[in-house]
């Protein structure tokens, strides 16, 4: 798979250069050096996180877009359905197989990045860092799993693989790029702001915008990774002075960080489950004829 290769190579390369950059400049100042490997970029190459959030959907779509309608056009779907197996076995198998592929792939890339960095920097992650990295891994898998589920859903609903592929990609482009513009426009319409607007209105504007942005799984993944990989983050969006009062800027514990991004996690899981449930229903009720 070409995409996997791209992600592996760029992921490795960026972690390599990132570790180089870290080694020179921030070695002493960073508390969670290991986690930074996944988010920091170096030498003009984007970070691993960027690659996952950008290419992950593409990977998920490639794995799922012709899951059902591809078998249908090849005539193998009616072959399998005429064997004594329940239909849900087929659809469950499709989901499990693609999620397992995604998980194995992301895990191996992350382990490679970690390995190279440990060898190069000599920094051994502590228990908490490993836990955070694991949760980040789960989030990445969930993120790609959502796109796979969506692609499988489209592959059930649409008769042609080309249609389902195009639909998935269109939705991906919308959620990855256009959602920023649209969120901005809607927020501007609802809470028009000028340079003289009072902070309350600015805050409302900003929170509506982030709310809308969170419809995009990419934004959810971004927020999750920020909170997980950067233990000092405790809140998203605008902060008020009252919130900052008496704040001691120490890193949060793992539990606290998870608490911060719990809603985002749940949203990602829910999105995948909804896609799966709809696909399941659609597939069970579909009449399969040869074409």
């Amino acid at each position: 798979m070409l995409i996997t290769l791209i992600i592996v190579i760029t992921g490795l390369f960026s972690s390599y250069t990132a570790s180089g950059a870290l080694g020179e400049e921030q070695f002493l100042s960073e508390e969670y050096l290991f986690l930074n490997l996944f988010t920091s970029a170096g030498g003009g190459l984007p970070s691993f996180l960027f690659f996952i959030s950008f290419f992950g959907p593409l990977l998920g779509i490639i794995l799922g877009f012709d899951a059902i309608n591809g078998e249908r056009t090849r005539g193998t779907l009616s072959l399998i359905l005429s064997q004594p197996v329940y239909r849900d076995v087929i659809i469950n198998g499709k989901f499990l197989a693609s999620i397992a592929t995604v998980a194995i792939m992301i895990a191996s890339i992350m382990v490679m990045i970690a390995g190279i960095s440990i060898a190069k920097l000599g920094v051994v992650p502590n228990g908490q860092e490993v836990m955070r990295a694991l949760l980040f891994f789960v989030a990445c898998v969930l993120y790609v799993a959502f796109w796979t589920s969506l692609a499988i859903l489209f592959s059930i609903v649409f008769e042609k693989s080309s249609t389902s592929a195009l639909m998935s990609i269109a939705l991906w482009i919308f959620l990855a790029f256009f959602v920023y513009m649209i969120a901005g426009v809607i927020a501007d319409e609802v809470y028009p702001i000028t340079q003289q607007s009072d902070p309350e209105l600015l805050a409302k504007h900003e929170s509506l915008r982030t709310m809308l942005l969170r419809f995009s799984p990419a934004v959810l993944l971004e927020e999750i990774s920020i909170a997980l990989l950067n233990p000092t983050v405790r809140v998203f969006g605008p902060m008020f002075e009252s919130q900052l009062k008496g704040l001691i800027l120490t890193p949060l514990s793992l539990g606290q960080s998870v608490l911060v991004i719990w809603p985002q996690f749940v949203a990602l899981i829910a999105a995948s489950i909804v896609c799966f449930a709809v696909s399941y229903l659609a597939f069970m009720r579909k009449e399969i004829r040869s074409v």
Partner: peptide, 19 residues
């Protein structure tokens, strides 16, 4: 359906195999 499919061989029109 499973009991029926166990004793019934069905060859659909334009059947496909894994190439």
């Amino acid at each position: 359906p499973l009991k029926v499919k166990r004793i019934t061989g069905y060859l659909p029109e334009n059947v496909g195999f894994y190439e």
